[in-house]
Design a protein around this nucleic acid. Structure first.
Lengths: 219, 219, 219, 219
DNA sequence: CATGAATGAGGTTTCATTCAT
DNA sequence: TATGAATGAAACCTCATTCAT
């Protein structure tokens, strides 16, 4: 009857400690419910119950169900981005082989921190809102990776943006496949190893090809 | 539900032809509705309407909503697998560089055949049923790819399974990123190029490392 | 989550007889529920139950609760307008005293046809949508009344619009007071009599004053 | 709930003054919220916020939401009644024409003091509680008007009660129509003029008819 | 076989009211 | 007394599925 005033952001800024705890409980509960019953049967009532609060309380901190999912997704993805950014900073000025290792290590570790959550969140990440969020955080990751690659002493990239995107897409895709396949320790170990090989080889190729290209341009 | 395979009539009766057409109309309508209103608002009634039939008819060909989605997903993914299988067959015995090119070309082309459908289907592919289907078709792709890689004259792979999975994951992930990012012609071109570089470099590295490994083992 | 596509009109045109019957049952049930439990406790579930259908059916014919109320109000008010229009047509060219009698008789009779409904509907007529509907039908009544007054042989009205509005407001207000006061037969009889006196006196005064005014203007 | 009448302190303590201010702030806030968001979206929390207090405080002065609305309605209607009573006192012993003018002037002025509030309150006046209140204050107005009419030197009314009710209903109805129609200054001016004509004519007619009636009865 | 009206369980969201601080 | 976070009953509305025609 009324025009929906829904935003995706929180309805009430949780400055107080109790509020903070409540919000965290809700987000955690959401992941738990998501992993236990699946996205299909995820209801606000169940989330609230699992969080130990009433539905009303949930709606005091989140304007709607969407925003709860948005919150979980953001929390999860932000952790990955932060880990990636830190890794990128640590391997600046290093050879691409080291970069590949650092990058892959950070990414896989971050995703495998909570494999259940990672898998569960794939199920809620396919809608315009979520997509926007993912694109935003993806671009943040790409920036960090591009910044790192620029400092590589043994490689130069003609199309840095394309290379970065490819790298990110490959890591994300391979990791997702493992996660959705069950992610046994063995699979994860193999993923790390192969991903290092793949990223290392790609960076070497893309960086070298570029050097040649630049050299040939100079002539 | 009833086995009609052992009837005499092997040729399609008019009725069966009509059925075939109806099923296809429903599947196509599902994709259209999916791209136009999103997975959230996908209802059987709307699908039926778009397909030009009644809900009742829809339920005569599909036991439930899930199965319709399953059908679309299967149709779409099967096309990709078939394309991949054909490409794998065509580049057998070729150098890995050629394999990379053939593989990437087939995969990207298949996915970009109907970018809208590809994107829309991501939204319905995160549930146990769909996951099982995807794993099944993924394994079929992996088999084809492994079969191809084994025939490479200029490379040998110690852990063929791991290499194949990595390759598939990287292609799928990078392609998905582009699709979800909008998939402009320019992006697609870049995707193809970079993906060829990536796959080529990876296969060379993984194949070479293996050769060395085998050599060192022999000693 | 979705943009509300609510209109006030019916969702499905009830051409079929069963549909027609269902819509009528719902409207009638709405009045009954309204008079028995009041507007505060009027719920779509209860309406549907009283109508002998399910909520789902109700929502197949009305897009939302508002539109059900709108429907009832429209049905009720339309009857009154129609009665008024007929009365206006019948007393054209008659003296204002006759007009007053005809007008009052028709209006009061129409309202008292279902006193319970009349009273109940007052409770749902205070919102923008309802107000718009009432204004629309009110203007239709005013047009009919003005058309009638113009033909009065024994009166001329300078500000016909103002006179008509006043007449309508007075009739409506006095009738409403009686309805909300309980509307015993005695009260209704008194209402008719006094209203005839009031309207007759007012029309005589307004029509005569105008004649004088016109006369004085001519001089 | 506790009787505080027989305490020594008859003068208002600061606390009571504050209470008085709080109550008034809440009542005023209610009107503001009512006019801005409508009765549908009127919530105690919003009222409290607009009044600059917390919900808890609101519930310290009013037992429930109903009572807040009751309070506003009473305040508003009481002002009208008081104005009417004063006007009735002032035109005692005057001719009915003067009475009509005084009555209409007072009523319209009182209602137009705060047109927004008048309109907004129509929306909350259709429920048993509110109806009872309105009937009570209406009867008080009727008493005042009857008392006045009895003193008219140039008219005598057989059914004084009926005449008074009719008068009140007509004034209320016509005024309401103008208020709900937007109440432009021009409309209000017209309302006053026409209402004076209407009331004057009606009182003259009802008073004269009665005289004749009485005369004929005497014979 | 096709139709589409009917069903009703269940999901989301609101908001009057309470009570610990 | 004031506060406002928490509560949870209850309302609205959707949509997968059925079945009489």
């Amino acid at each position: 009857m009324s025009a929906k005033r829904n935003t995706i952001r929180s309805r009430k800024t949780p400055v107080q400690e109790r509020s903070q705890a409540t919000v965290e409980a809700i987000l955690e509960a959401t992941i738990q419910v998501l992993t236990s019953v699946g996205a299909e049967h995820l209801t606000t009532t169940v989330i609230a119950a699992r969080a130990g609060v009433s539905v009303g309380t949930l709606y005091q901190y989140f304007p709607n169900k969407q925003s709860v999912l948005h919150g979980v997704l953001e929390m999860h993805l932000t952790k990955v981005v932060v880990a990636l950014e830190r890794a990128c900073k640590e391997v600046r000025e290093e050879p691409v082989a080291v970069m590949a290792e650092g990058l892959v290590g950070a990414f896989v570790s971050a995703k495998m921190e909570r494999p259940d959550a990672s898998v569960a969140l794939y199920a809620v990440s396919s809608n315009p809102e979520a997509n926007a969020l993912m694109q935003r955080l993806r671009r943040r990751s790409l920036r960090a990776m591009a910044g790192m690659l620029e400092t590589a002493p043994d490689a130069a990239f003609v199309d840095l943006a394309a290379t970065t995107e490819m790298l990110y897409g490959a890591m994300a895709g391979a990791t997702r496949a493992v996660l959705e396949g069950g992610a046994t320790p063995k699979m994860v170990r193999s993923l790390r190893e192969q991903l290092v090989v793949l990223c290392g080889a790609y960076l070497a190729a893309a960086g070298a090809a570029s050097v040649e290209a630049r050299v040939s341009l100079r002539r």
